[in-house]
Write a protein that binds this DNA or RNA. Structure first.
Lengths: 234, 234
DNA sequence: TACGGGGATTGACTCACGTCAATGTATCCC
DNA sequence: GGGATACATTGACGTGAGTCAATCCCCGTA
């Protein structure tokens, strides 16, 4: 975990929260921010740590997770370049990190003191609405996550996930998963074996196929029907 | 669904978001807010409706839920008197309601136009931090909800829930569930039968017993060990 | 007091998912 | 290029939770 000062303005502005701030505020952030270089599989912060700094992913991939009673990881989110780790903020009350954050690949992270973030929040109305919007988006995402997990049948869970990714990628018939199947399975709270078997049945039914991280959707309509529950094929 | 104008100031101030506002702002809200009286099982809003107003529970109980593909309800939250329905806000971008809201019992709800909430947000720094804090709490709650559902064994899920309630109630050995077991089961994404069977094994093992909505925790330590995974009894 | 309805409990059955184990396949670094 | 390491796939097996169905209980109501 190597720290370096002096971040160019563009690197700061790439994040929604700071994107439309005046130069003086960006400069204020710059003077108090630095980047952290992580090797693969290095911890950035741990669950229950008090929140003192906020982090923003500049490059690489980070996993946000909790440990289960059996010692395995439950993935809540994979953060990529441009993502703010929005679980990493607190305003008035003392907050503790709800999740662990660890790099998956070699990564760079922008680190900003909470005081500075609060300062920006107080001085820029634009930043305020951006922050609230980011939190609302996070709430909506988590609601979707809860819904995903309350679906009992693994087939449906995987179908929902695939259809989601399909839509996020502009309904292209082929796209790439942005992380390994192991992490996807964890995000879906399934065993890797179960995910594998679900994908196999989809391949056999001619709905979708996967080789490595490449996904090809053969029959989007059938997939959508699966998600909606019109189970022509189960 | 009966609407009535003119809400006394105290009714407005009972909610965190408005608790510390100056009289003029409260008055501003009062002029633009009204109460809604719902009979039991009456819809307040539906999923995917555009957000135009925010709601706050004055009395009674409301369920916030989604419908599953099989037509049953998945409960995300039960709102009680004093709770803001914090899924009911939006600032800049158009937002759609992520959940359905329906009264369980006869209820009263305070209804405030979104424009007014945004106004208050812009005019009171106190309200701003309260709102952000409320959203952060909601995020943390949802993360816990996701974790709860990613636990595979029903016993552990129920144990986690019971231990949580136990702590929320100041570690009293007996307390009341704040909604029916049917809804608790739905919150845990379990069938009522499964919840019932879990509670039976807890009774047989001398960990906890329940009659109707009354819960009695006989052995908090064993319960906590179950939650933590030191499975002396499974 | 009798009736009705929704919630809660219990039993019997089935099957989907987790587990364990083995094999196959990328990927990385020496 | 080759060996180590982690990821991915497949098979076999046992079990826990969903489903269907019956009964019971509680509460409100006629």
């Amino acid at each position: 975990m190597l720290e370096r000062k002096l971040v160019p303005h563009e690197q700061i502005r790439q994040f929604d929260l700071f994107s439309e701030l005046p130069d003086e505020l960006i400069e204020h952030i710059r003077r108090n921010a630095w980047t952290i270089s992580l090797k693969a599989r290095e911890a950035l912060f741990r669950q229950n740590d008090p929140v003192r700094r906020s982090y923003f992913c500049l490059s690489g991939q980070l996993k946000l997770f909790r440990l289960t009673r059996s010692g395995s990881e439950k993935i809540f989110m994979i953060a990529h370049a441009g993502d703010g780790l929005c679980d990493a903020i607190s305003l008035q009350s003392e907050r503790f990190r709800p999740l662990n954050a660890t790099s998956i690949t070699e990564s760079e992270v922008l680190s900003v003191d909470s005081e500075v973030v609060i300062d920006v929040f107080h001085r820029s109305q634009r930043a305020r609405t951006q922050l609230v919007d980011a939190l609302i988006r996070r709430v909506d995402d988590l609601i979707d996550h809860v819904e995903l997990l309350s679906v009992d049948k693994a087939n449906f869970r995987v179908a929902s996930f695939l259809f989601n990714e399909y839509q996020r990628n502009g309904k292209k018939s082929s796209f790439q998963l942005n992380s390994s199947k192991k992490y996807i399975a964890s995000y879906l709270s399934l065993q890797p074996e179960t995910l594998s078997r679900c994908l196999r049945t989809f391949r056999q039914d001619g709905i979708a196929s996967s080789t490595n991280r490449d996904i090809r959707i053969h029959d989007p309509d059938r997939l959508e029907q699966l998600v909606l529950g019109i189970d022509a094929a189960a």
